[in-house]
């Protein structure tokens, strides 16, 4: 089984395993462009994207022209929106999910409505949210929060429901009152599932920030991507795409880190993959 200690001493063979796929993609992409298999203005080679991306961030070479040096502002705008939407959506989702898991009465009151709403794609909310909130941050944060809400809620409910009934009975037998049951049994028992929900919510938040920024605002990586597309700057488009991918990846790692810090106990009885 994998353990954290193994990871510190990564062997050369493992480094290779990590690098095989990205290296192959980059090489193929570069070659395809160099031999003229694809037109450079449609799919610029990685060598060009890197230069444009560099200027996008530093503003030192003007390779990105009108976008030169604008990266930090866009990246910050997107990140901020993601976390703002995630914060309200996931918080509300966890609370609603816990309540549904704890009480059949609350389940009857909330669950049917939520199940119907859940099946409306968040993108279908775009027109209404623009009409309602106007152009700007508000509709973006609304859409992101809406998307983050459902996985957080569903996983919190599942987290409560899968708690071993014997643990619940044992705590009651020892004299735990309602508050102690919630704080000492239900919450820690549901935590692994809650954190799984947060991870999914974070993923959805990054999807929706792009949708929202294409439609509702004039800043952010989604806006940059769409604007560069309109100006036929596919190199900037690709740089923006990769930026979103990387920031999404870093956010996901953050949630995983929180998970690791909180759950030192949950990984002992799982497969965890081969070495």
């Amino acid at each position: 089984m994998r353990s954290r200690n193994d990871r510190a001493s990564t062997r050369p063979a493992e480094v290779l395993q990590y690098l095989v796929l990205p290296a192959a993609v980059l090489v193929l992409w570069q070659v395809a462009s160099d031999v003229g298999f694809v037109r450079r203005n449609i799919l610029p080679p990685p060598s060009e994207v890197v230069l444009v991306w560099y200027d996008l961030i530093t503003g030192s070479t003007d390779a990105a022209a009108r976008y030169s040096g604008s990266w930090l502002g866009h990246a910050w705008a997107s990140t901020w929106r993601v976390f703002a939407g995630f914060a309200w959506g996931a918080t509300l989702g966890i609370v609603a999910g816990l309540l549904i898991g704890l009480s059949r009465a609350v389940e009857r009151m909330l669950d049917p409505t939520l199940q119907v709403l859940r099946n409306i794609p968040v993108t279908a909310w775009v027109p209404l949210s623009l009409v309602f909130f106007g152009i700007g941050n508000a509709p973006a944060i609304f859409l992101i929060g809406l998307g983050a809400f459902f996985p957080a809620a569903i996983n919190a409910t599942h987290g409560v429901r899968q708690i071993n009934i014997t643990l619940y009975k044992a705590a009651r037998m020892m004299g735990a009152d309602e508050r102690e049951l919630l704080r000492r049994v239900i919450l820690p028992g549901a935590l692994p599932s809650i954190l799984t929900g947060l991870r999914l919510s974070m993923g959805i938040a990054w999807v929706l920030v792009v949708v929202a920024e294409i439609l509702a605002v004039r800043r952010g990586l989604g806006y940059l991507l769409n604007d560069a597309y309109l100006f036929y700057r596919n190199d900037v488009v690709i740089a923006a795409m990769l930026s979103i991918g990387l920031l999404g990846f870093v956010s996901d790692r953050l949630v995983v880190l929180v998970r690791r810090a909180l759950l030192t106990w949950n990984e002992k009885e799982t497969f965890g993959g081969e070495h």
């Binding site: 643990l167 037998m173 020892m174 935590l191």
Partner: peptide, 19 residues
């Protein structure tokens, strides 16, 4: 109802996996 005067030992061990 259940109470701490009657300790129950279950077949499926009732230990909190996070403790």
């Amino acid at each position: 109802g259940p109470g701490p005067d009657r300790g129950v030992v279950f077949q499926q061990t009732a230990l909190f996996p996070w403790l």
